[in-house]
């Protein structure tokens, strides 16, 4: 019986495991953390339909209760080898050894470390938080400054760590724009009297329902969108943030004081993806993500025969695309297994 080893138990890994198992293929799913779900565990609501992230995560987790799926939580692969018979040998951190016909890399992404944008003051000024930390506040239904006060004016900063030559990231992380819109609306619902500003370069509303949500944010929720990139933030004596932005539509510099600043942190290639690339000799794209053989036709294939990639290991993508990519990878793997 054919067996596939999946490295990474985020949404892509879970969905691919489920699809492969449904086709009668044995799956070994390896996840370094003690639960599956990856970055989805850090999200409160999903865009554009405001679905609970936990509900989707529960579905993905339930799908793993399948006789064909063997889950290895809290495990990391050691050195991976391909033997003469073309089988992949994956020793795990507990000393066990997995053997499979194919390997799927679904090691996802890592969140950009906002401290690298020093001028934004994350880790330095107490009321600068990331979009991930804001999701946690949404979980608790409480948006507060560190001193316990309710923020009267909030700024959401787009493209933090994305499309930014200064931090060596030229790529777009794709989902920050819509995340910003979604979070602005969620903030408005919790804080009806607070001024909310989004500072953006472009609004890339590529997904179904995204543009509509963006329009609704402006018309119904009174979110103010300012086209301009933040140049720097500083803290005043009241622990407020004084920011400097150029409003590029008006063509004038703008200085504003905020009570809270939220950084829409982008996506970077994960440590796991880089380790897998190093171990298996996978090609990396210039943006650091695993390079597909062909962006159109063989997008789940890597340069190594029998090794596939799914989800954000190969590029930033939203959850909809991640799950679709996982299904696509499952199909590519099944084709491969039939061939060998």
């Amino acid at each position: 019986m054919a067996k596939v080893i999946i490295i990474g138990g985020g949404p892509a890994g879970c969905e691919a495991a489920h699809q492969l198992a449904n086709q009668g293929i044995d799956v070994e799913l390896v996840e370094k953390n003690n639960e599956t779900g990856g970055n989805l565990n850090n999200w409160y609501q999903l865009f554009p339909d405001r679905k609970s992230a936990k509900d989707l995560n529960d579905i993905l987790k339930q799908n793993l209760n399948h006789p064909k799926i063997q889950l290895h939580l809290g495990m990391e692969p050691r050195k991976i080898e391909k033997n003469k018979e073309g089988k992949f040998l994956v020793p795990l951190s507990d000393g066990s050894l997995l053997e499979g016909d194919s390997l799927l890399i679904s090691t996802g992404f890592k969140i950009f470390d906002a401290r690298r944008k020093e001028e934004y003051g994350y880790g330095i000024y107490e009321n600068v938080i990331t979009s991930v930390e804001l999701e946690n506040m949404f979980y608790n239904h409480s948006i507060q400054m560190v001193n316990g006060n309710t923020p009267k004016r909030i700024g959401i900063i787009h493209c933090v760590g994305s499309r930014d030559e200064k931090v060596c990231n030229y790529h777009c992380s794709k989902l920050c724009c819509i995340t910003g819109v979604k979070q602005a609306i969620e903030l408005r619902e919790l804080l009806p009297d607070t001024e909310i500003f989004c500072f953006y370069m472009d609004m890339r509303m590529f997904g179904p329902g995204y543009e509509e949500m963006y329009r609704e944010a402006q018309e119904k929720y009174n979110i103010k969108f300012v086209r301009g990139r933040l140049s720097e933030a500083a803290e005043n004596l009241n622990k407020q943030l004084q920011i400097k932005v150029e409003d590029t539509l008006v063509g004038k510099p703008l200085r504003m004081t905020l009570d809270m600043m939220i950084l829409l942190v982008g996506m970077e290639s994960s440590e796991g993806s880089r380790q897998m690339a190093d171990t298996l000799g996978l090609n990396l794209a210039p943006n650091g993500f695993i390079k597909s053989q062909d962006p159109h036709y063989r997008n789940n294939n890597t340069n190594v025969e029998g090794v596939f990639v799914a989800g954000c290991g190969s590029a930033p993508m939203n959850l909809t695309d991640t799950l679709a990519d996982a299904r696509s990878a499952a199909m590519s793997i099944m084709e491969y297994i039939k061939r060998i």
Binding site: R115, R116, E118, Y122, G123, I124, Y125, E126, E235
Partner: peptide, 10 residues
């Protein structure tokens, strides 16, 4: 200002 946060970066 959290000086430790700043020092961590460099």
């Amino acid at each position: 200002m959290n000086l430790e946060g700043k020092q961590q970066i460099w």
